[in-house]
């Protein structure tokens, strides 16, 4: 298998706190991988390091799209342009903008018209804008939000906001998609739809997915492989069956947090 994302010995210190401790992780092309662990284990910190929002203290991060690129020290927007996109645990939509505009922002790094184009509105700019609008609307259709395309993001329901964040991330044409607790706050029906959406993203767009999730039913049925974190370290990894049978995991996570 060719890898999509490879992380080696990633560590992150906040002052005296070691939030990540030599984490190794790998996602292969077309895989759906889950990252689980109790609150405060360092999962979101891992995402922030991988996407360039935090600078890791040590370790290497490689993205394969298709060439192997070292991501350390790169700015978040550069990493996004290289083909990795994410959603946020505490939804970070542009609340005052409409759903369509939110997705259009995602198209920013795949379009190019500048200030002069904006002022003179030449043919190329107009065509690019046309394409941006239509592509964004198509993505809203993909996540079934097209009927709400002209609603402000802040007025959308919780589940809709989560799907809008996914659409916005997809607009950047990622090869690797990171989802931070996408099912948090969703009802069971929405969670089932989310599962289908994630599979659809992988199957129809060839996007590899790494997701943080607490809903064990979702994690077990959706993911090809699972990594388990505790206190900043990776304590186990394997297929859902292996994880379910792993005593360390049962003790650390399933035993207490999923109760």
């Amino acid at each position: 298998m060719t890898p999509a994302l490879e992380v080696r010995d990633l560590s992150k210190n906040f002052g005296g706190l070691r939030a990540l401790n030599d984490v190794d992780l790998r996602v292969d092309k077309g895989e759906i991988v889950a990252l689980i662990g109790p609150n405060g284990a360092g999962k979101t910190t891992f995402f922030n390091c991988v996407t360039g929002i935090y600078q890791p203290s040590s370790g290497e991060i490689y993205l394969y799209n298709p060439d192997k690129t070292l991501l350390n020290g790169k700015k978040p927007n550069v990493i996004t342009a290289l083909g990795m996109a994410r959603t946020f645990q505490n939804i970070r939509l542009f609340g005052e903008m409409t759903a369509l505009e939110n997705v259009m922002i995602g198209r920013h790094c795949r379009t190019s018209s500048g200030i002069l184009g904006a002022i003179f509105r030449d043919k190329k700019t107009r065509e690019e804008e046309r394409a941006t609008i239509d592509d964004s609307y198509a993505l809203l259709e993909f996540v079934k939000l097209h009927e709400l395309w002209n609603e402000k993001a802040k007025n959308l329901a919780y589940g809709a906001q989560r799907r809008l964040e996914i659409a916005r991330a997809l607009a950047t044409e990622p090869a690797m998609l990171l989802l931070d607790e996408p099912a948090a706050g969703m009802n069971p029906q929405e969670t089932i739809e989310l599962k289908e959406l994630a599979r659809d993203i992988r199957d129809s767009r060839g996007v590899s997915i790494l997701l943080i999730e607490h809903d064990m039913g979702l994690v077990m049925s959706l993911s090809d492989r699972i990594y388990v974190m505790e206190y900043g370290g990776c304590i186990a990894s394997g297929t859902p069956e292996e994880i379910r049978a792993n005593p360390a995991v049962i003790k650390a996570y399933l035993g207490e947090s999923d109760a």
Binding site: T51, G52, I53, K75, P76, N77, T80, A81, A85, R86, F88, R92, L93, F94, G95, E96, M97, I105, G106, H108, C109, R110, R168, A169, T172
Partner: peptide
Amino acid sequence: QAVREDEIASEAMGID
């Protein structure tokens, strides 16, 4: 306008 609303989200969406 995206930068006005949320700098971190803008950066993560590929805006310099």
